[in-house]
């Protein structure tokens, strides 16, 4: 006999939508809002910068000027900013476990649900 799902009330539907909204904003937006997530790019400005000390040749100086930046001090932070790619292997392993574990979990739980779908659609279950 086909599975007959319960009918969801309007209140239940609203509750589910709010849950998803809270999840989306809580997990993705709040870390940004609190400054917990972001690019690990840090400026290392030099003192008394000149175009030469910032490693910019004559053509590049023309390009900066065309972009509206004629003072080397204004370009100092842009030119000297660098990402920090140092990382801990523990953090990398945790991340890998998180990603792989997520897919394993989803595929296994999906398969359990999929067998119910196939059983109902085709009538018999594999022995």
């Amino acid at each position: 006999m086909a599975y007959e799902p319960p009918k969801q009330s309007m209140a239940g539907q609203i509750f589910d939508v709010i849950t998803l909204l809270v999840l989306t904003i809580g997990a993705l937006y709040i870390p940004l809002y609190l400054g917990l997530a972001g690019a690990a790019k840090v400026p290392n400005p030099i003192t008394n910068p000149t175009w030469e000390s910032l490693g910019q040749n004559a053509t590049e100086q023309q390009q900066w000027a065309a972009l509206g930046i004629t003072d080397p001090a204004a370009a100092n932070e842009i030119i000297t900013a660098r990402f920090d790619y140092s990382f801990s292997w523990t953090a990398l392993i945790v991340m890998a476990v998180l990603v792989i574990g997520y897919f394993v979990m989803v595929v296994r739980l999906s398969d359990r649900e999929y067998r119910e779908v196939i059983e109902e659609r085709f009538g018999t279950k594999r022995r």
Partner: peptide
């Protein structure tokens, strides 16, 4: 590409994975 995102934006990768794990359980 996951490793590439991890370099510099690891926190966001974690946040995203947590989001999808919780959503899946829900």
């Amino acid at each position: 590409a996951y490793f590439a995102v991890f370099l510099g934006y690891g926190t966001q990768l974690s946040a995203m994975m947590c989001f999808y794990i919780v959503a899946s359980l829900w």
